[in-house]
Design a protein around this nucleic acid. Structure first.
Lengths: 344, 344
DNA sequence: TTGTATGCGTTATCAT
DNA sequence: ATGATAACGCATACAA
C-alpha cells in the first residue's frame, strides 16, 4: 500500500537518498534548480509521503504530545482540550488523548504507554495520585503540565482556576444580595483533589470574612448519586439554607434536579450560584448566575507552557498559574431587599 | 533522559539483544529460567522501557488510530469519542484526535499528516468533501470508517443514525398527539451534509405519509446565528406552527432561546421535539421530549469495524450501519385533546 | 552541489 | 536455548 520510500524517489530522480532528504527538509540552498525539479516531479509521480516514524526514530522527537484526562465527558475537559488541540495544530503537533476515568492505576499505565510511544510531553488532568511517577518525570525534566488539578508534592507547571477566589466571588455576590445562610454542595472531599478542597476552603473563609454563619449542616459533600438524597434531608430538617453554592457543573445539575422534583422556586425559595458556565445557563428559567472559568485561555496556556519545556529542555522554574474566574450575573440570585423568606 | 536501550539491558544481563527482544515479546518457550530472570532483573535495574517508535518502524504498525472530527465541542462528537477511546484502550491502541472545524482543507491536511504518522486507521466525522482523498484511501484498502456523516460517492464503512426514522419518529409522535401544523428547524442544507438532508427529507416524507400539510414557510433552514431572527419572522407573520422539530441540539438551543425571549409557552403555545438528547433535558421546564442517538454504541461499532479492517487487510464489503433512534418521552409535547390553541 | 556510510532501537532470519 | 546480522526509512557527517 504505502510502500513508496525515499529510495524510490531517489532512483526515479536519479539522485541519492540524501539529496531527497535535503530537499524534503528544505535545505535547497546548494541544490540545482534542475535536480530540485526532478525530485519534485518524482515525488509527485510516485505519490511519495515521508514516513514520520522513521524520522522520529532518528530525531528522537515525535511532534506528538499526550493528554490524559480524568473525565473526557466533562465540559471543562472538552473545552480545554479544544484549545490544546488548536495550539498543537498551529505547531504541527498531534495530540493523543487518553481517558483515565479518574483511576490512578489507569493513569499510571497510560503515562507509561505514552512515554513508550515517545511523546514529546504530557498534559494531564490528573487523578491527584501517582506522586512517585510524576516525581520521576520532573527529575528527568520530562515536559509536563497539570491542568485543573495537580499533585501536591510535585514541582511541575500547573494551570488552575483561582479556586479560592471563585468561591469568594460566590459568597461576596450572595452576601451583597442580602443572603446570610448559605450552603455549599460538592462531591466528597479528598486531599488529592485540589480544586474541591480549595473551593470549599475558600467558601468557608469567605463566609467568615463576611461575618456570615458557617453552618456544618450546610456543607453537603456526597457522591454525585447521593446528592439529591442529602439535599432532601437538609431541606426536611430544621431551617434550610437561603442560597446554595455548587462547586461545579455536576453538582449544579443535581441541585437543579432536586429543586425541580421538590417544587422549590429559584431564586425565591433558594438562590443558586455555581462554578462552571453550563451551556444552558441562559435558557434555563431563571437564567443561571454562574462563575465561569476561562477554559480556552487555560488550554492555550497549558500548551504554551508545554512547548516551552519541549523546546528548551534546560531546567525551568515550575509555576502554578491561577486563572481568574468571572462572575456571570443572571437571574438565579435576586436582591433580597426586605427580609422576606416566604415562598413566591 | 530516556536513553537506556535494549543493548544496555543485553549487556547487563550478559545476553544478546535478540534474546532480550524475545523475552519482551514473551517468546520464552526456549529460554532458560535462568536467563529469563537475569533479563528481568536487568530491565528492572535500568528502568528500561522499550521504544515503540523503533518497533513501529520495523513492524509497520503503530497501534495508533486517527480520529478527525468536524466539531470537537459537539456533544455527539465527545460521546462517540469516549466510546472509541475506550474500545481502543482495550486493544492497546492510542487515538490521535484532530479537529477539522468543518473545513475540508484542514481535513485533507490532517489526513495527510496522520497517514505520514503511519496511523493504522482513520475514523472520521467528515466535512463531506474531499471525495478524491477518500477514494484513494479505499482503493488502497486503508482502514477507514465514517461516523455521523459520510461522503456520498465513497464506498467505506459508515456509522450513521437512522436519520429518516428519527424524523419519522418525531412526526409520528407529534401526529399522535394531535399536532398538524408542524415546522422543522435546521442549519442550511447542503448535499454533502448527509444527516441534515436525510432528517429534513425524512421529515417531509413522514408529513405526507401522515397526511399532514407540508408548509414551505415552516421549514426554517438558516445559519445557527440567524435562526432566532428567522423564527421571529415566522411567528410574526401569518399562522405560526403548533409544533417544531429541531434536527439537532444546536438548533434546539436556538429555539429555546427564542421561546424564552418571546414568552412563548412550551408546550401550550408550541410543542418541541428534537434529535440529540441534551444533558439538561430533564431539568428544563418543561422537560424536553427528545430523540436520542445511541452514541456509545455508535462509537463502539466504529472502533470495531476499524479494527476488523486493520486485522484482516483483505477486501471487506463496506457497509452503512444505521443505528436506531430512541424517543424519550417527556413534557415538551402534550396531548392536544380538544383543539384549543389559546395560550395557557 | 551531490553521494556514501552510518546510526536510530527494534524485530526477524538464520545460524550455532 | 541463544547470538550475529540484516533490515525498517530517514537524517547527517563527511567525502567527493
Amino acid at each position: 500500500m504505502k510502500k513508496v520510500t525515499m529510495a524510490d524517489v531517489a532512483k526515479l530522480a536519479n539522485v541519492s537518498k540524501s539529496t531527497v532528504s535535503q530537499y524534503l527538509n528544505k535545505r535547497y540552498e546548494y541544490m540545482s534548480e534542475e535536480t530540485r525539479k526532478r525530485i519534485a516531479r518524482a515525488i509527485e509521480e510516485l505519490g511519495y509521503q515521508p514516513n514520520i516514524i522513521a524520522r522520529s526514530l532518528k530525531q528522537k522527537t515525535t511532534a506528538t504530545i499526550g493528554v490524559i484526562v480524568f473525565n473526557i465527558l466533562h465540559m471543562l475537559t472538552i473545552q480545554v482540550l479544544h484549545a490544546i488541540e488548536e495550539a498543537c495544530q498551529e505547531r504541527g503537533f498531534h495530540v493523543i488523548v487518553s481517558n483515565s476515568d479518574d483511576d490512578p492505576e489507569k493513569e499510571k499505565k497510560y503515562i507509561d504507554m505514552l512515554l513508550a510511544k515517545q511523546v514529546d510531553g504530557l498534559i494531564v488532568f490528573t487523578t491527584g495520585k501517582n506522586e512517585d511517577v510524576y516525581q520521576r518525570l520532573v527529575e528527568e525534566r520530562f515536559p509536563l503540565v497539570f491542568v485543573d488539578r495537580m499533585v501536591p508534592g510535585v514541582e511541575a507547571d500547573a494551570i488552575l482556576l483561582d479556586n479560592k477566589r471563585a468561591a469568594a466571588l460566590a459568597v461576596e455576590y450572595l452576601a451583597s444580595h442580602g443572603y446570610e445562610r448559605i450552603g455549599a454542595v460538592a462531591p466528597p472531599l479528598a486531599s488529592h483533589v485540589v480544586p474541591r478542597m480549595e473551593r470549599i476552603e475558600g467558601f468557608r473563609q469567605a463566609l467568615t470574612e463576611k461575618g456570615l454563619p458557617v453552618i456544618a449542616d450546610y456543607f453537603v459533600t456526597a457522591e454525585i448519586s447521593s446528592i439529591q438524597r442529602e439535599l432532601a434531608k437538609l431541606f426536611a430538617s430544621g431551617r434550610p439554607p437561603e442560597a446554595l453554592f455548587a462547586i461545579n457543573d455536576l453538582t449544579l445539575m443535581k441541585i437543579l434536579h432536586f429543586v425541580k422534583n421538590n417544587g422549590i422556586h429559584v431564586p425565591d425559595d433558594l438562590a443558586l450560584i455555581s462554578i462552571d458556565d453550563v451551556p444552558f445557563a441562559d435558557i434555563y428559567t431563571p437564567t443561571l448566575t454562574t462563575i465561569a472559568q476561562p477554559t480556552f485561555a487555560m488550554g492555550k496556556k497549558a500548551a504554551e507552557r508545554l512547548f516551552m519545556q519541549i523546546v528548551r529542555k534546560q531546567k525551568h522554574k515550575p509555576q502554578i498559574f491561577r486563572f481568574p474566574p468571572t462572575l456571570i450575573e443572571r437571574k438565579s440570585v435576586r436582591q433580597r431587599g426586605n427580609n422576606n423568606d416566604g415562598r413566591r
